[in-house]
């Protein structure tokens, strides 16, 4: 069953004579039960995409399907079975956390017990009567997460849920997300905290300048082919010997915590490689399959992950 599907989703912002292609023809699917990470550099269009999913931005083109429903009425109905945050925690600053959640519960048609459970889940029960304005950033983020679970939603959409949290806070949020997924809910979250996503998500999509450039399971994205990391007393001899192995495609050296030499093979035959090397009197002290981190994969895919990539802006004037 599909939880989220988009077809050719597009959003161009216009301001004066220029336009920004914030989202430029995005098609993807999130199946039920997945924890789907939506990755992209700053300004790549993550928030805009989520805004389109939630019906608060009007698409320039394209279609959205949520929990199998589409059309204005259908999406409205599906949104009531979805919990979501967008960009920042958005609450009434003069009301307490609890009162804010009660307003949400009434809209969702959820019982007040849901509010207590949600506050418990995120550990805000003892601060429930404090005004939202008096919460710390971490508490605000947790309240936003609490609001998304009210009404027992099938789908939870989170825009950078761990933004601004300390490592302890991040771990708590990660654990809550995993617990919610265990309860059978589909989770869609945007982030640029790649280590977090790698620990949490089952599937990811990478967006850059409004376009999807990679999508798949986390394993598929970090998959490198048959690359092995090796270490020996004499790295130079190791590299030289490895280059003569018939199954070796490429051999390179790199400063790495636990490897001197990396070897890419044509097939999964590390034992063959080891036997070959020992035949050349090179004895490896370490030989492991090398996995890239999601961060490596991300940086490779997006090119300039650190910089503001920004949507494509043109000065062509409005489109017809």
């Amino acid at each position: 069953m599909t939880a989220i599907a988009t077809i050719g989703l597009r959003k161009w912002y216009r301001s004066g004579f220029s336009r920004t292609r914030a989202v430029d023809g995005i098609t993807f699917r999130v199946e039920r039960g997945q924890i789907f990470g939506f990755l992209g550099p700053n300004g790549s269009g993550k928030t805009t995409t989520i805004g389109l999913l939630l019906g608060i931005l009007r698409p320039t083109a394209g279609e959205v399907e949520l929990l199998g429903r589409s059309g204005r009425r259908g999406l409205l109905e599906a949104r009531r079975r979805t919990g979501a945050t967008l960009e920042t925690p958005n609450f009434y600053p003069y009301l307490s956390g609890e009162r804010n959640l009660r307003l949400v519960a009434r809209v969702k048609g959820a019982p007040d017990a849901d509010v207590d459970r949600a506050l418990d889940l995120v550990g805000l029960s003892d601060r429930r009567t404090d005004r939202f304005a008096a919460y710390s950033l971490g508490m605000k983020q947790r309240l936003a997460l609490a609001a998304t679970v009210i009404g027992d939603p099938e789908l939870i959409i989170l825009d950078e849920p761990a933004n601004g949290l300390d490592p302890e806070g991040m771990r708590e949020i990660r654990e809550i997300i995993l617990r919610l997924a265990d309860e059978g809910r589909t989770i869609f979250l945007s982030s640029h905290l790649l280590a977090e996503v790698e620990k949490t998500c089952t599937h990811v999509a990478i967006i850059k300048k409004g376009q999807l450039i990679r999508q798949g399971t986390v394993d598929e994205i970090v998959e490198t082919g048959f690359v092995y990391a090796l270490r020996a007393d004499d790295p130079a001899a190791l590299a030289e010997a490895a280059r003569t192995f018939p199954g070796a495609r490429e051999v390179w050296t790199e400063r790495d915590a636990d490897a001197d030499v990396f070897v890419e093979l044509a097939a999964r035959e590390p034992a063959e490689l080891n036997r070959f090397l020992s035949g050349r009197a090179v004895f490896v002290s370490r030989l492991v399959e090398h996995r890239r981190s999601l961060e490596d994969a991300f940086i490779e895919a997006t090119g300039d992950a650190a910089g503001e990539s920004g949507g494509e802006s043109t000065g062509e004037g409005s489109t017809g």
Binding site: L54, I56, Y92, K108
Partner: peptide, 14 residues
């Protein structure tokens, strides 16, 4: 200012 108007719609109000 508080983006609560958008959140109300996200929460399921038409």
């Amino acid at each position: 200012d508080w983006r609560t108007g958008r959140q109300n719609v996200i929460d399921g109000l038409g």
